[in-house]
């Protein structure tokens, strides 16, 4: 028997918080993306733990889908970063103020 599931869920909460903190305080767009990956991984860990707690394969299938969606998200997101860098030559979120009047 593995460790109590509560510990896994607590770790998942802490990992998600660190990711959210990174998105909020970092200004480099690429690092913000990595922090989004951290949050997705925290959700994955929670799903796998719930799958074990409830003895339900649905949680594991959902992790599978999250992985695919994360891959698609990274491809499109990095495409946006490259397109943005071509126009502005910056990877800092503060320099993107095209909509500012």
């Amino acid at each position: 028997m593995s460790v109590n599931p509560d510990w896994y869920l607590g770790l998942s909460v802490v990992l998600f918080s660190i990711g959210a903190l990174g998105v909020l305080i970092r200004r480099n767009v690429l690092v913000m993306f990595m922090c989004i990956e951290l949050m997705l991984n925290a959700a994955n860990l929670a799903f796998v733990t719930f799958a074990r707690m409830l003895d339900d394969i649905g949680g594991q299938v959902l992790v599978f889908f999250v992985l695919v969606v994360a891959a698609a998200e990274v491809v499109v997101g990095l495409g946006i970063v490259v397109a943005m860098f071509r126009r502005r030559a910056t990877a800092t979120a503060d320099d993107l103020h095209l909509m500012k009047g």
Binding site: G10, V13, S17, L21, R52, L54, D55, D56, I57, G58
Partner: peptide, 29 residues
């Protein structure tokens, strides 16, 4: 973030983390 983390941990601890029905989509083990 600290507030949200503490809140989530406390909430999970109080509620026992899971309230769902077991093996809805099939057994995992």
């Amino acid at each position: 973030v600290l507030l949200a983390t503490t809140g989530l941990l406390l909430l999970g601890q109080i509620s026992g983390w899971t309230t769902g029905a077991p093996h809805v989509a099939g057994r995992a083990v």
